[in-house]
């Protein structure tokens, strides 16, 4: 009962803040509503007994990535640069398109099926603590995908370095 209530609360806040993020005129407010959204995503992970992912969600997404977004937003002049024409500049057409899309989404829902249950039951994870369970799985079953993700990040880091270096030489 309490879990269901918490889920409903988190889910409705996520939907609400997602809408607000799109609606706000001021991009700083949009980023802040995404911050609230990420926070409640962490809440959803907690409900699933995935405490490690919940903490990482807040640390990485809310604490690092969104701060970088804010950094960029502060550096550009908001009044001059954020003037974008509407994607569909016709109110009726836009309403029709979004309602149609909404109906399509509702139509898809019944085909959603729960996946097969894995080895990890709730009791097993609470005994082992989620952090350890995830660590074991990550470094045994999913070692290859984990290493591939690490390699991709390394490429991104090197790419960032190369881009930053080039600009430096041009200035000299």
């Amino acid at each position: 009962m309490l879990n269901q209530f918490a889920f409903l609360y988190c889910a409705s806040v996520i939907i609400g803040t997602a809408l607000l993020a799109v609606r706000f005129k001021n991009p700083v407010y949009s980023v802040l509503s995404v911050l609230v959204l990420f926070f409640h995503m962490g809440g959803l992970y907690l409900l699933l007994n995935a405490e490690f992912i919940a903490a990482v969600q807040v640390i990485v997404y809310a604490g690092a990535i969104l701060v970088l977004y804010l950094f960029v937003l502060f550096l550009v002049s908001l009044k001059d640069e954020i003037k974008i024409d509407r994607f569909v500049n016709n109110r009726r057409l836009a309403t029709a398109a979004s309602v149609g899309f909404g109906i399509c989404l509702l139509y898809i829902i019944p085909s959603f099926k729960l996946g097969a249950k894995g080895d990890f039951t709730v009791e097993r994870i609470t005994n082992l603590t989620h952090t350890k369970a995830m660590g074991f799985e990550l470094y045994s079953t999913f070692l290859l995908p984990f290493e591939v993700a690490g390699l991709i990040l390394l490429i991104a880091v090197i790419g960032g370095l190369v881009l930053a270096r080039k600009e430096d030489e041009v200035q000299k």
Partner: peptide
């Protein structure tokens, strides 16, 4: 269980 991570999360939000 994740006391240390919780403190990191809070201090990153404080910024």
């Amino acid at each position: 269980n994740i006391g240390l991570l919780f403190i990191f999360a809070m201090s990153s939000l404080a910024s």
